[in-house]
Structure formats: C-alpha cells, structure tokens
C-alpha cells in the first residue's frame, strides 16, 4: 500500500508532463543542424583565400627572404641577387604622403560631420560623397592625380602618388572617425557642458580622446589599403631603381619605387631572379598590410 501510494503521484505527473527529450528527427532540429553546418562551412570558405595566399607566398617567396632583399636595389636584366629595399622605402614614403594629406582633412571633416553640423545640408552632401568615394576605382584616383599633380608639376613624384592615395584613404578616415565620434555617449557630452566646457572644449577634451581608438583604427585600415594599391601609383609614382634618399638629399620630385609596382613589373619579366623577387616582395607587402591591420585592432581595443 505504502509503495503504491508513493509511486502513484509520480506516474501521473509523468503522463501529463510534456516530453523534454531532444529529437534529432524532428523537422526543426534537422533544419537547425543543417543551417549551423552551412554557416560553419561558409566561415571556413571565407578564410581559405587569405590562408592559401599566405601559404603560397611563404612557399614561393619565403626562401628568398634575407637581409639582402631589404637593403639591396632591384637587379637589372640578367643580374643575380639584388633586393627591393628602395621599394619598401618608396611604399612607406608614398603612403606617408597620403596619410599626411588625408588624415588632417579626414579628421576635421569627421568633427564637422559628427559634432558641428551633423544634420546640415553640407554634412548630408559630404557624407554622401564620402560613401560614394569609398567605391571609387583606384585607377581613377591615379588618373585624377596624374591630371592634377603630374601634369602640373611635369614629373612623376611621391607627392603625386600621395594625392592619389589620399583620395582613396579619405573616405575610410572620414567615415570611421565620424562613427567613432558618434559612439561617444551623449551623456558624457552633457556632463562636459554641465561642468562649463565650451563647444570646442567638449570636442577636444572629451569627444576626441574618447573616440581616439576608433579614429586610429580607421587611419590604420586606410593605410593598410593604400599600401597595397598599384593602379594609382602607375600614373603618379611610376618606378625608380634608386633610393629615395641618396647622398643625403631626398629626391621628392622624381619618380619613386613602390612594392606593388615592383611586383607588377617583375612578375611579367622573363627572368627567374626577378620572378622570385616578385614573390618575396609580395610576401613582404602582405606582411606589412597585415601588420597595419593588427595595429588597427590593437589600437581599437585600447580603452582608458
């Protein structure tokens, strides 16, 4: 009797309670598994190109990696050895010119868009232009700088390349900096006004420092993109087989070497040595771009 009594209620509950077991054959759990699998597959496919490119570059270009390639000038036709030190310097110089032009303009434009007149007509037009410029084919940036700078100065040069690259960097700098500044909580700005800040003090002392990691991320991404560009350089920087700084003088208003143009030139040559160097140069360029991207992430993560 006792046993029956104590078991009876449990059995009743078991009958009425819904079954909580997972059923793999049910329609929605099959869909669930299928979609999860597809998402996994897509994620893996998406990372295949970068990994395979890196793998290919390391296999084909890695063995030529030595101090020599960083310090030597590019070899002529049948010459053995050589390197692309001047092209690395050239890439840094051209991107440097681009950064010097685009960062101040982009930064101030972002302040205007995010803080001064965020809803004005000028802001609307500027924002639309910046977004459109994001998709500008890079060769057009090159042609533009050719027409504006190269024809005017009568020579291919690093500043001309800088203008072309600045055109490509500008929208990234403006839009990410604007986004970062807009992320600054309005209650923080209210606090600054409440304590007696003028508008420029609010912007310089509160908005900019708070948004700085995000702004730097945008700058680094823009630099990373510009470092890999080839087309705009063909029209503006051309190429050079010599160092940017030679015998203590910088050859600013002369054609300048760059990694991407060196790769473009050497990859098409019929000489084994040059083709090998092109692979190595590609590896170095990818590593530089990767470095800027990692830097962007590190700076973006930094919090006060």
């Amino acid at each position: 009797m006792n046993i029956q009594d104590s078991f009876h209620p449990e059995q009743e509950i078991a009958k009425e309670a819904p079954c909580l077991q997972r059923s793999l054959l049910e329609g929605r759990s099959i869909t669930n598994i299928l979609l999860t699998g597809i998402a996994w597959l897509a994620a893996i496919i998406a990372s295949v190109p970068l990994i395979s490119v890196l793998y290919g570059l390391i296999v084909k270009g890695g063995h030529r990696l030595s101090l020599e390639v960083f310090t030597e000038l590019p070899p002529a036709g049948f010459e053995e050895g050589g390197g692309f030190g001047n092209a690395i310097v050239g890439t840094l110089v051209t991107v440097g010119f681009g950064a010097v032009i685009s960062i101040p303009i982009g930064f101030l434009a972002a302040i205007f868009l995010a803080e001064l007149e965020p809803d004005g007509k000028v802001a609307y037009v500027a924002r639309f232009c910046a977004k459109t410029l994001t998709g500008l084919p890079s060769i057009l940036a090159g042609v533009f700088a050719y027409a504006v700078v190269v024809l005017a100065t009568g020579t291919y040069s690093a500043p001309a390349a800088g203008v072309a690259l600045a055109l490509l960097m500008l929208p990234t700098v403006v839009l990410t900096a604007e986004g970062a500044m807009r992320m600054v909580p309005s209650k923080m700005k209210a606090a600054a006004y409440g304590i007696g800040c003028t508008r420029s003090q609010v912007i310089w002392k509160i908005v900019l420092p708070t948004a700085l990691p995000g702004v730097l991320t945008g700058v680094m991404l823009a630099i990373a993109r510009a470092a890999g560009e080839t087309a705009p350089l063909l029209f503006t920087a051309l190429f050079s087989n010599y160092w940017f700084v030679e015998n203590g003088t910088a050859h600013v208003m002369e054609p300048i070497a760059s990694l991407s143009v060196l790769i473009y030139n050497f990859a098409g040559m019929p000489y084994e040595n040059q083709i090998e160097l092109a692979w190595t140069a590609s590896l170095v360029l990818v590593m530089m771009v990767l470095l800027f991207n990692i830097l962007a992430r590190v700076l973006g993560r930094k919090k006060v």
Binding site: P185, K187, M188, A190, A191, A192, Y193, G194, I195, G196, C197, T198, I206, P209, T210, K303, V304
Partner: peptide, 21 residues
C-alpha cells in the same frame, strides 16, 4: 552660458563619468 555652468554645477540622471581616470 559656459560661465553660468561653472557656478551652477549639475549631476545627471545617468552616472556619466568621462572615459578617463
């Protein structure tokens, strides 16, 4: 108004410290 706010301070509904030490 900036000077007014220096003499009449304000504490807001949401705590809003600056992103600094």
């Amino acid at each position: 108004p900036v000077v007014v706010r220096r003499y009449i301070g304000m504490v807001f509904q949401q705590p809003n410290p600056f992103a600094m030490s």
